[in-house]
Write a protein that binds this DNA or RNA. Structure first.
Length: 905
DNA sequence: CGAAGCGCCTT
DNA sequence: TCAAGGCGCTTCGG
């Protein structure tokens, strides 16, 4: 059923003779339609922003563009400010339900999507979207355009003409034809130009415009046709008989008001012209970024498909120079002589995918040439020639993920040096909160290049049938892209002030981390097994007791089943609400135990503790490598603040707080050939950074004097002598001090300390009255971040927080807390990273065998070679202490022991 | 089989 | 209603 607009041309290609078509969308009304059509709970990002309206809106828009093939598109939005209608009639649109919480922020997101798609969003102070639409329709017609209005507001029917149609979606976004004059007449028995008269008589509940009681569309249409519209009706008002006639006469002022208000203005001075509405290709980069954030993946594909901008198409455009195969030392040397003066992209080909540990070949890319060398069968001379170019700093190399590449090569006995860029780290410094910094993702975002492993071309000409898959081509392609990315990102990094961090901090650190990962930490596997058995027997016992207490079995690891037991069978008091019912978390269980003393709770808590510990032990057991050591992997580009993270296994969250948990630390031991483990940690580094950044004289003085900080703060807050600060007071103050850097609220503090909100508020007030500079600093950080769009650490590491200006309060609050925390956590991260460079340098200068093994945010664990303890401790203390010049000293605590537990705290 | 939800360990 | 992480288990849906 071709509509007139779509029906004009069934051909897919627009030709010049086709009439120009303008698509005008009522933004709010369509956003609401979409909002109610799609369940909000199924559309949200992991930051909690709901996106159902955005999703539905964009989906609808894409459908419209595909079906109607407009040449021009614009979206009109209402503003929150008063309009001439609400000023004239204060009840206008009153009584509407408040917009649901889930809707908040979605209009702004839709506008962002429109911006990325180069579609203008138009709104005008004092007027409604409807007026903008009416004006666009009028001007569009005058300019010779066909117009299609998409609106959920019936007032738009008055705009229908020969050249203007209205699409009025019934419910949701369905495939219905646009309304023309005949359609309006069929439904309402009046012509479009008379629809406003009809609406004035009948009234419009959505706008809070009551009509004439007793007069519905039928009666109104009858009168309109009889008397020729509202003016005729008013002229003949006295001749209308019956009850409805009386009613009309009684409410005639309402009708006049309605007619005045539902008349749409068609002569506004619009801020944009039709040129701006020309439908263009979307801004790919902006769409990618936005859809990444919104987690719109199917829409992304639909959008790019629609605009013929498929990633695969873009990929075709990348011209990778055909590679030369470097078969021997001679060709290798020749290639480097010819092309090595340029920046070289380097990429290692591995077997077994990204997790591969064996390098099978190396690809190189210069500006105009590429090369590949297979490492599967190289002779001695070639190996040496390769070793020379890899380790030579005369060849400037860019890689993506230098740590992995370095390890890969080192495992094969090859040293890598002369690295001038790691595009993974560069991309991270530019955009630290991206989810992924994998090469294909970064290439996609910045170069619009598709680099999926799956699309590794099976190009016939190079595939050697007898030698398995073509490893060279994808590797060469990657090397080429790395080089291009390196050049593309360099300017951006400089702009964002991150060049120094890259070259002087992160890249050198990468190699240190590689060494630490390769070193690993020795474990006592017998002890590990023993622990496993211990925890298992605890679990067995706790499980039996739990079943005994309720008289039947249940999966104690299933929150869902536990809810049934706790809140239905046992009918215990309800806990905090969560999505699936009521929480069964540890805190709530403890509460319930206090309230009810039910033995099931005791057993459950014991089960929880023991299973958690056994899981940790099991994870460690599985992670022990052939050398009897555990090799974690440090992720250098994950934490948005600049911290490292540790995975496979995570050695940064090994239990320490509970007695039982600490037993796990005993299995990390000094390795064969070494004398002892040494731990060194910064004491209260974040508080010290807070003192430094806030320049609070009192705090600084306390640290200069080497006071017990929490005791000192406690004495000020509670107004007692330091020696009279009770342990309770001290712990309150400690919780507060740390909480402040996280944007702690009085509510949060009250919950943590189990005190009243009032008490918490007083505590904070007293704190800030003594340490006013801290409060001033915290305020200033957020203000500055809002202005700049980013926060910065002492060493210039930036974190961009666009959500600081979001309309969505929840998102804004989250961003504000991140803004408070990022400079502090991030500066601490910078400092320990600097310390690691220093320690490494110190160890190397002293030619020691001792080595760093682990980093746990504010702590380093080293393995000390025989006879080196004294020197190592001196180096560590000096280098860690000198990692930053703050207004307060950096205190380092050192511990020695055969196990991590013995050496620690 | 992967994603979502819950829960819990660290600094 | 306190920041930054990693990970195991259950449940659910494709």
């Amino acid at each position: 059923m071709p509509t007139r607009l779509a029906g004009v041309s069934e051909s897919t290609k627009l030709v010049a003779t086709d009439p120009q078509r303008l698509l005008v969308i009522d933004g709010h009304s369509m956003a609401f339609r979409a909002f109610y059509a799609l369940p909000a709970e199924n559309f949200s990002t992991d930051t909690g922003q709901y996106t159902n309206a955005v999703h539905g809106f964009v989906s609808m828009l894409l459908t419209m563009i595909r079906q109607q093939k407009p040449t021009h598109v614009a979206v009109a939005f209402d503003l929150d400010t008063p309009t001439f209608r609400s000023l004239e009639y204060t009840e206008y649109k009153a009584g509407r339900n408040k917009t649901p919480e889930e809707f908040h922020g979605q209009i702004a997101l839709i506008q962002k999507v429109m911006e990325a798609m180069n579609i203008p969003s138009i709104s005008m102070d004092g007027f409604e979207a409807d007026d903008i639409i009416a004006t666009l329709a009028a001007k569009g017609e005058a300019a010779g355009l066909d117009v299609l209005v998409v609106s959920g507001d019936r007032d738009a029917f008055q705009l229908i003409t020969e050249k203007t149609l209205v699409l009025y979606p019934k419910k949701g976004i369905s495939d219905i034809p646009p309304m023309d004059g005949d359609a309006v007449e069929a439904k309402y028995f009046v012509r479009p130009e008379e629809y406003s008269d009809l609406a004035a008589l009948v009234g419009e509940t959505a706008d809070n415009l009551p009509g004439v009681p007793g007069v519905g569309p039928k009666t109104a249409a009858k009168w309109i046709n009889l008397y020729g519209g509202l003016p005729g009706i008013l002229e003949n008002i006295d001749s209308i008989k019956g009850k409805v006639g009386d009613s009309l006469r009684e409410h005639v002022e309402d009708v006049k008001r309605n007619r005045h208000l539902n008349h749409l203005l068609r002569d506004l001075e619009l801020p944009v012209g039709f040129e701006a509405m020309t439908l263009e290709r979307p801004n790919r980069e902006a769409v990618e970024e936005l859809f990444d954030a919104l987690q719109f993946n199917t829409l992304r594909k639909r959008l790019f498909d629609l605009f013929g901008d498929d990633p695969q198409d873009a990929a075709e455009e990348v011209a990778v120079p055909e590679h030369e195969l470097l078969k021997d030392a001679k060709t290798l040397q020749a290639w480097f002589t010819a092309h090595g003066a340029q920046l070289l992209g380097v990429h290692a080909a591995t077997v077994g995918g990204a997790g591969g540990t064996d390098v099978v070949g190396l690809a190189f890319a210069s500006n105009d040439a590429t090369a590949y060398i297979s490492l599967e069968e190289t002779d001695e001379a070639t190996e040496q020639a390769l070793a020379k170019v890899l380790s030579s700093t005369s060849y400037a190399k860019a890689v993506h993920d230098v740590k992995s590449t370095y390890k890969l090569l080192k495992n094969r006995g090859l040293e890598l040096a002369g690295i001038v860029d790691d595009t993974m780290i560069t991309a991270y410094l530019i955009q630290p909160d991206r989810r992924s910094h994998e090469l294909p993702d970064i290439a996609q975002q910045h170069l619009r290049i598709s680099l999926d492993a799956s699309d590794a071309p099976a190009n016939g000409q190079l595939a050697l049938d007898f030698e398995g898959p073509d490893l060279a081509t994808p590797a060469v392609r990657a090397a080429h892209v790395v080089r291009a990315l390196s050049q593309h990102l360099a300017g951006m990094l400089v702009e964002r002030g991150g060049e120094n961090l890259l070259k002087e901090l992160e890249m050198p650190l990468s190699l240190i981390l590689a060494d630490m990962e390769m070193a690993g930490i020795a474990v006592d596997t017998a002890k590990l097994d023993e622990l496993y058995d211990d925890f298992t027997s605890t679990i067995t016992q706790a499980t039996a007791e739990a079943f005994e207490a309720i008289g039947h079995e249940v999966n104690l690891s299933s929150p869902k089943q536990l809810q049934v037991v706790l809140f239905e069978e046992l009918d215990l008091p309800k806990t905090k609400k969560i999505k699936t019912g009521f929480t069964t978390d540890a805190e709530s269980l403890a509460d319930l135990l206090v309230k009810t003393g039910h033995p099931f709770l005791v057993a459950l808590m014991a089960y929880r503790d023991a299973t958690k510990l056994r899981q940790t032990v099991e994870g460690l057991r599985k992670a022990v490598a052939a050398d009897g050591r555990i090799h974690t992997t440090y992720a250098q580009t994950v934490a948005a603040t600049g911290r490292l993270s540790s995975l496979n296994p995570n050695l940064q969250n090994i239990p320490v707080r509970s007695e039982e948990g600490r037993r796990i630390r005993e299995v990390f031991v000094v390795g064969e050939g070494y004398e002892t483990l040494l731990t060194a940690d910064y004491s209260q580094i974040e508080m010290r950074i807070m003192a430094h950044l806030s320049e609070d004289e009192a705090l600084i003085q306390a640290y200069m004097d080497g006071e017990d900080l929490h005791r000192f703060v406690g004495s000020h807050v509670f107004g007692v002598e330091p020696e009279d600060v009770s342990s309770e007071m001290r712990s309150k103050v400690k919780a507060m001090s740390y909480g402040l850097a996280y944007g702690l609220s009085s509510f949060g503090l009250s919950k943590q300390l189990k005190i009243s909100v009032d008490e918490a508020r007083t505590l904070m007030k007293d704190y800030f009255s003594r340490f006013g500079a801290v409060r001033d600093y915290l305020r200033a950080v957020v203000d500055q971040a809002r202005k700049d769009g980013y926060t910065e650490t002492i060493f210039g590491r930036r974190r961009y927080l666009p959500e600081l200006t979001s309309d969505n309060r929840q998102l804004r609050d989250i961003a504000e807390r991140a803004a408070l925390n990022a400079p502090i956590q991030g500066s601490a991260a910078d400092i320990i990273k600097r310390a690691m460079l220093g320690v490494q340098e110190g160890l190397a200068e002293a030619k020691l065998k001792s080595r760093m093994l682990l980093q746990v945010h504010d702590e380093l664990v080293l393995e000390v070679a025989p006879g080196e303890l004294e020197t190592v401790e001196k180096i560590v203390r000096e280098r860690m202490g000198a990692a930053a010049e703050l207004k307060v000293p950096l205190d380092v605590h050192v511990g020695i022991g055969k196990s991590w537990q013995d050496a620690g705290h």
